[in-house]
């Protein structure tokens, strides 16, 4: 079984991952120990820098008693000698039991899955999919809010290029969540994603004014707006300033509003928010471990 896109998982499978993730929490915290994946080797192929995703996969594997091997620095390895991804995969699959890959090109994980007889998990392919992030976002929302039904989720920031928001929006709409997309016109949610959400029965609202959406929000999902998307710095600063989440903005919010962010953040969330009960982005980052443990366990088997 490969996990390349969130669409590879049925709704039942997503629910199963969430149940398993819940059971993984004491193991992820180190309160309980497990040998479920004793003797198994995870190969991490990160062709792009990553901190959270890579470390949480490694931590997940080790918490289940497995071991990890990695590519080393890509510039020092066979990749820099011009080896194709297909050949790299054919080599790595004989050294490991499961492969986790992040790659700058869209479709790289699907290609890896085709060349590998061992399971492949996509940890982000270019501007494409990042299914384990989607699952951990879903798990975080489910864990805090208990139920998806009638939740009002506001997504704000770079909704056009931010790879986490497309699959999250589709997944949330399949659970009956109401969605609001807040972004400047140039960075608004792609039409294809909006149509997909509508096909699933959602009626997403699109706006560029965050302050008008905050009062009704149950979840505020913030993403980083990247400077390099803007031709000039002044334009970037104007937009970045419009979507800054701080205490003043949150005065209007419901008391149980939760603020999430896939991290790393730059200045879209003021550090003064960190100490408020709204801030759940560090808990979200921790949830990467139990969710990835659940996936590794689901794919590789093994009793807890």
């Amino acid at each position: 079984m490969d996990i390349v896109s969130i669409r590879d998982l049925s709704r039942e499978q997503i629910e199963e991952v969430m149940e398993r993730s819940e059971r993984m929490i004491p193991y992820a915290r180190g309160e309980k120990a497990s040998k479920a994946l004793d003797g198994k080797i995870l190969a991490t192929l990160f062709f792009e820098p990553s901190t959270r995703t890579r470390m949480s996969f490694e931590s997940a594997m080790m918490r289940l008693g497995g071991r990890i091997t990695d590519l080393g620095v890509p510039s020092m390895s066979s990749i820099s000698k011009g080896e194709s991804l297909a050949d790299t995969i054919r080599m790595v699959e004989v050294y490991s039991d499961i492969i986790v890959i992040r790659h700058p090109r869209e479709g790289a994980a699907r290609l890896a899955a085709r060349f590998s007889s061992k399971p492949v998990i996509n940890a982000g392919d270019g501007a494409g999919q990042h299914p384990t992030q989607t699952l951990l976002d879903l798990f975080t929302i489910k864990r805090i809010k208990k139920d998806f039904n009638k939740l009002n989720v506001v997504m704000v920031g770079d909704l056009k290029y931010g790879r986490t928001v497309h699959s999250l929006a589709e997944a949330l709409s399949s659970f009956g969540v109401e969605l609001t997309f807040v972004a400047p016109a140039a960075l608004q949610m792609p039409k294809e994603t909006v149509r997909q959400v509508e096909r699933m029965g959602g009626r997403p609202k699109l706006t560029n004014r965050l302050e008008e959406t905050i009062a009704d929000a149950d979840v505020l999902y913030v993403t980083r707006i990247q400077k390099e998307r803007f031709p000039d710095l002044a334009e970037y600063q104007k937009v970045a300033g419009m979507y800054r989440v701080d205490r003043r903005l949150l005065r209007e919010a419901k008391s149980d509003l939760i603020v999430l962010h896939p991290l790393p953040r730059v200045d879209e969330i003021d550090p003064e928010v960190d100490g408020t009960p709204h801030a759940k982005y560090f808990e979200q980052a921790f949830n990467g471990v139990p969710v990835r443990m659940a996936l590794l366990n689901l794919v590789l088997g093994g009793e807890l």
């Binding site: 194709s84 991804l85 090109r105 869209e106 479709g107 790289a108 270019g126």
Partner: peptide, 15 residues
């Protein structure tokens, strides 16, 4: 061919 220039099939891969 895929119209996405950043698609892996537009690289030098045997697919």
């Amino acid at each position: 061919r895929c119209s996405n220039p950043n698609c892996i099939t537009n690289q030098n891969e045997p697919v």
